[in-house]
Amino acid sequence: MKRFLIIAAAMVFLVIGRPMAQAQDAGISGKWHFVLETPGGDREVDADFTVDADGNVTGKWGNSDVAGTYKDGKLALDFQFTSEEVGATAAMKIDGKLNETAALAGDWAFTEYNGTYKATRPAAAVPPPASDAKPNAPADPHQGGAAI
């Protein structure tokens, strides 16, 4: 009986644990805001990734097409990037991992430049507060305004 309970408990953990592990690592698909640390100051870029079932990453890094992999919480990108600031097109390499705060952090390299980065998901746009004004309401003729 004890053996049966151990096997049953193991099966429960396998069945429940796998979806929970997948939920913890929701992946990197979607929009990201990267801040690259450079000797000349921080450089910011927005990216949008899609990860397929095999862990292949596609999407955009600014205006450049992205290629790479995302497996076991680790990101590895290697794609052609044109920097107008540097005046060069070369391989951009981004390596890092998704941390416990759901941010990406790691290293980047482009031509002779390299450094570290941190990326977070952009905050959702908050709609402006509703105004009490009623722009389409007709003016009150008793208040000296003209009716529409």
Rank of each mutant, 00 (worst) to 15 (best):
P138G: 08
P135T: 11
G145F: 13
H142E: 14
A139M: 12
A130C: 06
S83G: 12
T38F: 03
G115H: 02
D46W: 09
L14S: 13
M1R: 07
L104A: 02
W61I: 02
I148R: 12
D48N: 13
L77E: 00
A130K: 15
A109L: 01
M1V: 13
N56E: 14
V15K: 07
V57F: 03
G144V: 07
A119E: 04
A26F: 05
L98Y: 00
H33G: 04
V66A: 02
M92Q: 07
E100I: 06
S64H: 08
A9P: 05
L98P: 01
G62P: 02
I148C: 09
T101L: 13
T69R: 09
S29G: 14
K118W: 01
V86Q: 03
L14H: 02
T89Q: 08
S83F: 10
Q22S: 12
E100A: 15
Q24H: 11
V66M: 03
A133D: 14
T58W: 01
H142R: 12
V12T: 12
Q80D: 14
D46R: 11
V57G: 00
A76D: 14
E112C: 02
G59C: 06
G27Y: 04
I28W: 01
L98G: 02
N63T: 14
G55V: 06
P39L: 11
A146I: 11
T111E: 08
Q80A: 14
W32Q: 06
T111V: 15
A125T: 13
Q22F: 04
D78L: 08
T111Y: 08
D65M: 07
M11D: 00
A9F: 15
P129T: 11
W108R: 08
A67V: 14
N114K: 14
P19C: 13
K31F: 08
F81H: 01
T120S: 15
A47R: 01
G55A: 10
L104H: 00
I16M: 15
W108A: 10
A124S: 13
L77Q: 00
N56H: 10
D25M: 10
A147N: 09
A53G: 12
L75K: 02
E112T: 15
T116C: 11
P39Y: 04
I16D: 07
